[in-house]
Amino acid sequence: MDKMRKAGRPRSFDPDEALHRALMVFWERGYEGASLALLQEATGLTAPQLYRAFESKERLFERAVRLYQEQYGFAMRSDLPLVEAVGDYLERAADEFTREPGRGCLVSTGLLATGKDAETAAVIVRAERDQALSNLRDRIVGAVEHGELSREIDVPGLARTIGALLQGMSVQARDGADKRELTRIADTARILLSAAAQP
């Protein structure tokens, strides 16, 4: 009977495990650095098996980004005043970006400069970054409405500044910065934001 088995996925194939292994490759290497050979080696699948399971490298990356957000993503706390929430958010980033299994943020640095072959994947992470920026703007608007910040504050500018800090921390983590070094960025941001919040 086994000899009659058609060629296909290995009997032990676990799509969730394969996806997680692919995520680790994308997280370490970025989209364009994650070659088909590396993805095959990580998942234990042949190229045809990989495409049958995940359709394309772009769809595999899209699912990996979704899994990354579910398992490793984090948001700003809504139960703290804005200054404390931003400090906590960046401190969490300092911790998350410097611990295993990956360094930095897949969404921030997994795909920046890109060629035409990666345009679909670029759209995927850009959409995630845009959503994060929108969430930051909403949080700041709420802080203004509750009197935590002046109504003169540049809401879009502040949101982009916090987003840029987060993305910069991801780059520095990829370059080897440790948790202590990144936490200093969070501490400095808290001080600057506290000063800006003073009436």
Results as ranks from 00 to 15, higher is better:
residue 135 N to G: 14
residue 134 S to L: 12
residue 116 K to C: 06
residue 125 V to W: 03
residue 114 T to R: 15
residue 164 A to Q: 03
residue 157 G to E: 09
residue 112 L to E: 13
residue 142 G to M: 08
residue 122 A to Y: 04
residue 165 L to A: 11
residue 138 D to W: 03
residue 163 G to W: 00
residue 105 C to P: 06
residue 151 R to I: 05
residue 141 V to W: 10
residue 104 G to K: 08
residue 134 S to N: 10
residue 134 S to H: 09
residue 99 R to F: 00
residue 103 R to C: 06
residue 118 A to Y: 04
residue 107 V to E: 00
residue 128 E to V: 14
residue 140 I to E: 12
residue 115 G to I: 08
residue 159 A to N: 08
residue 156 P to E: 11
residue 161 T to A: 15
residue 159 A to K: 01
residue 138 D to T: 10
residue 102 G to V: 08
residue 101 P to V: 04
residue 159 A to Q: 05
residue 106 L to Y: 11
residue 108 S to V: 03
residue 133 L to H: 14
residue 167 Q to E: 13
residue 121 A to I: 05
residue 124 I to P: 00
residue 165 L to S: 03
residue 167 Q to F: 07
residue 127 A to C: 03
residue 104 G to Q: 06
residue 109 T to L: 01
residue 105 C to V: 10
residue 120 T to G: 05
residue 109 T to V: 07
residue 153 I to W: 01
residue 164 A to D: 06
residue 159 A to G: 01
residue 99 R to K: 14
residue 114 T to Y: 15
residue 117 D to S: 07
residue 148 E to H: 01
residue 151 R to P: 10
residue 137 R to L: 04
residue 103 R to K: 15
residue 127 A to L: 05
residue 129 R to V: 00
residue 122 A to L: 13
residue 124 I to F: 11
residue 108 S to F: 11
residue 122 A to I: 03
residue 131 Q to P: 00
residue 101 P to W: 03
residue 130 D to W: 10
residue 145 E to H: 07
residue 163 G to D: 05
residue 156 P to V: 07
residue 120 T to Y: 04
residue 107 V to M: 00
residue 166 L to N: 07
residue 115 G to M: 06
residue 118 A to L: 06
residue 159 A to V: 06
residue 101 P to N: 09
residue 100 E to W: 05
residue 143 A to Y: 06
residue 145 E to T: 12
residue 165 L to I: 12
residue 127 A to W: 01
residue 165 L to G: 04
residue 122 A to D: 06
residue 110 G to H: 13
residue 160 R to D: 07
residue 133 L to G: 12
residue 111 L to N: 14
residue 153 I to K: 01
residue 141 V to Q: 15
residue 129 R to G: 00
residue 122 A to W: 08
residue 119 E to W: 03
residue 125 V to L: 04
residue 117 D to I: 02
residue 142 G to L: 10
residue 119 E to P: 00
residue 136 L to E: 11
residue 131 Q to G: 03
residue 116 K to P: 08
residue 120 T to R: 12
residue 131 Q to M: 07
residue 103 R to D: 04
residue 150 S to A: 02
residue 161 T to Q: 13
residue 139 R to Y: 07
residue 138 D to L: 11
residue 139 R to W: 06
residue 148 E to M: 04
residue 140 I to R: 14
residue 166 L to T: 04
residue 129 R to K: 02
residue 154 D to C: 02
residue 118 A to F: 02
residue 127 A to H: 08
residue 124 I to T: 09
residue 120 T to L: 09
residue 125 V to T: 14
residue 127 A to G: 09
residue 167 Q to V: 08
residue 112 L to K: 13
residue 131 Q to C: 02
residue 103 R to H: 12
residue 142 G to H: 09
residue 140 I to G: 14
residue 135 N to C: 14
residue 135 N to F: 07
residue 135 N to P: 01
residue 124 I to A: 01
residue 101 P to M: 09
residue 114 T to A: 15
residue 136 L to G: 11
residue 106 L to D: 12
residue 100 E to H: 03
residue 109 T to H: 13
residue 131 Q to N: 05
residue 152 E to C: 03
residue 151 R to W: 05
residue 109 T to W: 08
residue 161 T to W: 14
residue 146 H to S: 15
residue 107 V to C: 00
residue 148 E to K: 01
